[in-house]
Design a protein around this nucleic acid. Sequence first.
DNA 1: AACCCGCGCAACCGCATTGAC
DNA 2: GGTCAATGCGGTTGCGCGGGT
Length: 357
Amino acid sequence: MGRAPCCDKANVKKGPWSPEEDAKLKSYIEQHGTGGNWIALPQKIGLKRCGKSCRLRWLNYLRPNIKHGGFSEEEDKIICSLYISIGSRWSIIAAQLPGRTDNDIKNYWNTKLKKKLLGKQRKEHLSRRGKSLKQDVKRSASVGDSMVPADNINQSPYWPELPVLAVTAAPLMHHSSTQEHRIDSQASMRRLLVKLGGRFSDDDHVINEETTLHQFPNDSYSTDQHLYEQTVYVPSSSSSSTMDALNLNNNMDAQFVNSQYTIDEANQHMLHQGQSGIFSSELQEMGYSNPQRLDGMEFLYGEEMANNRAVNHCESIGWADTSSLVGPPCASEYGVIQQGMLQDYAFSEMRYPGGAQ
DNA sequence: AACCCGCGCAACCGCATTGAC
DNA sequence: GGTCAATGCGGTTGCGCGGGT
């Protein structure tokens, strides 16, 4: 029992749109609007197109103020940051980039940005691999031991130097203001993700975590507002409309869509928690003994992260609760992209061992 | 010149969600 | 509360183009 088709496929034209069709659709919508019914619209204009197709054409191409191509460095960072934060929710990401469509961003990510990241990842890997090898040779020579670097004995051939992340089972409860802020931010991010539709695999733990997170004595609006203010930046230029939207309802999605996400802040939050911990459990499930690998992503996080990671990778992290973030609609995608990158990377290593191309 | 291959992008497909009844 | 149609969304496909052989 299949799904009923949205239109009569036999009488519907498919494929690229002609300029005439574009003109018809554009002029009609500019004059009359969509009429709230995309299905009926093509018949009204006399287009042999599916309503969905018309909608897509309008949204992705004919709509005014659409930008195509030429993504800036800033936009790159926003896309990457949001992808890491919320996964492949392109419509939400697109809402943060005026003039960009979800389709455009999706294509850009799949064809360029992902590769760009992998390129950086690879570069970093090679440079550190070089350094590591030199050190290993030096060490082996001084110890007079086997030529096999001690670090590499238990490692996958394609993952020559992955730091091990120790994931703690419970949030850390330190009392320095920095730590408080850290845990606070972590909980904020987590809650934001939950509100965006994420969920946590260890729902049983969630209860415990909620009671453990003394920073959040209750679930009051003020707390949510606090976390929202922490994680969302409302640009002054559009503050009135955005604030209207915020005041009109408590729908976090709407708030998110109608506001500007503080990318840097979000990154800071995640990075201070050891953001890559998010992936750890899933990667471990996938059989990667050394899941902590974000090489090439450092540019998203800045020098601080790049440096901190080296220091922190053996420490317990306060992001432990979110390390188990899984499941639809977005959380699992962290793992997916990480998995994708890992697989891509491993594959390229198989083809070009040692990075020689 | 012909063919192959990879890339970028527009469009399609089908599932999920929403809203009206 | 259930059903169904419309809409939204993300993944995937297919085509055109340019570069390489």
